[in-house]
Design a protein around this nucleic acid. Sequence first.
DNA 1: CGCTGCCTTGATCTTCTTCAAAACGTGTGG
DNA 2: CCACACGTTTTGAAGAAGATCAAGGCAGCG
Lengths: 245, 245
Amino acid sequence: MKSPIDIHAFDPEMCSVDLRLRILSQVPFFAGLPAQDIAAINRLFQEQGFQPEQSIYCAGDPAERLYVVAAGRVKLLRHTLSGKNVLLDILTPGEFFGSLTALGDEEYPDTAQAQTSTCGLGIGSADFRTVLETYPAVSLKVLDIVAGRLKAAHEQVRQLSAFSVEKRIAYALLRLADKLGQPGEMGLLIQAPLGRESLAELTGTTTETASRVISQFQKDGLIRTGRQWVAIANRQQLEAVIGDD
Amino acid sequence: MKSPIDIHAFDPEMCSVDLRLRILSQVPFFAGLPAQDIAAINRLFQEQGFQPEQSIYCAGDPAERLYVVAAGRVKLLRHTLSGKNVLLDILTPGEFFGSLTALGDEEYPDTAQAQTSTCGLGIGSADFRTVLETYPAVSLKVLDIVAGRLKAAHEQVRQLSAFSVEKRIAYALLRLADKLGQPGEMGLLIQAPLGRESLAELTGTTTETASRVISQFQKDGLIRTGRQWVAIANRQQLEAVIGDD
DNA sequence: CGCTGCCTTGATCTTCTTCAAAACGTGTGG
DNA sequence: CCACACGTTTTGAAGAAGATCAAGGCAGCG
């Protein structure tokens, strides 16, 4: 089965002014701002292109910038000394990551890595803090988003504490489908390069166990899958695996 | 060994105006505000007393209030249908919990429960949103706090994904000691009623396993413990259990 | 056509859970 | 003050879930 994943390829250096403004005005927390304010904010951002697998920043680096995804997919992850990775989130255009604090003496707690060709818009922490101070409504939007992420992280903690690998993978697939899903002949295709290893890092298990679970899901007709891709074939049954809670 | 835990007992109904103002001005995100602003904000809060084990709100209830701990200890937890609890955090005076969003149609994702006699200050979500809009500096402080909690939650995810129970418990004890620690003859005492069950819910394991680990820690001289209490005897060695990362 | 990753599958081993029961400590009422 | 009763903690033994180790298979690509 040839990979159905097809994220619009582009020269990461070519992040046009047009795209920048469109993205910034679509970013949830700038939405609603007058056009001239957006233009002013836009001038504070610098664009930057990244190749697949390229690190945008690494855990431990001084945290001095905040980024907005303009195009592509960005993985947010943490490491352990033993080399194991923990995948916290996959970010799509319009989402932000990096440093939220004005203080310059902190370090990034995690690593951000381009999963596909990516265009990022970066801003210095201090500049972003100025934006927040200048537009209080933006602060509130950012707060809502961060609060939502906290809620999601707590849910993740609950699942890791109480659920089997099978349930966690089912849940992760549904969550990814909500975010990255693209209807097609295969069902709801998760539009990102998603191998067994990524899935394992996302759910706190090993590649082998993830593979076994995925294979079983396919046998049961819940999903369709191939090299580096997964599509939901039967959402209801997949939800039934979680069994509710 | 008699329990050395001694959280100042008080009539939860008796949360004096004096205490209220002192607490509110000590809350990190109101600190720095002029006294008259604090007094104005104070009028929006209603105080409420809770007995140990009493629920302040339950997961699923409509999320319409935000609380600040004035005195006591509050447990923040989630449930599973199978009856297992997941303890997310233990909150101390000055910390907030509950609903951050203005939207009234949401539900609390978790349960808040008084762990000791507790005095809470409650405010309607909409009123709190008004406060945030009126004092933009407060929004930024709240944002910083929530961002910090997100970082901590991500760390928890990493640990549950990659660490053994032993390491997770060692880490949890150190974190609790940082927050609730009180130096004494026993070492650094965690000033909260902390049984094996709570420790298990906090680290995603079972009471029995938590008991075994705790017993071993005591045998090795890392901690001193008894019924419903734990004190750190040798912080360095306990940190060595985590092994760094 | 063969190489290189990714994916799968099997066998074994460790960790942790589960079930069961006994020991302990704490507060209570006699 | 003592003895009892309850909830907490401890300990043991058996079992399950998942990790680890080790090959082998398959797909895409040069």
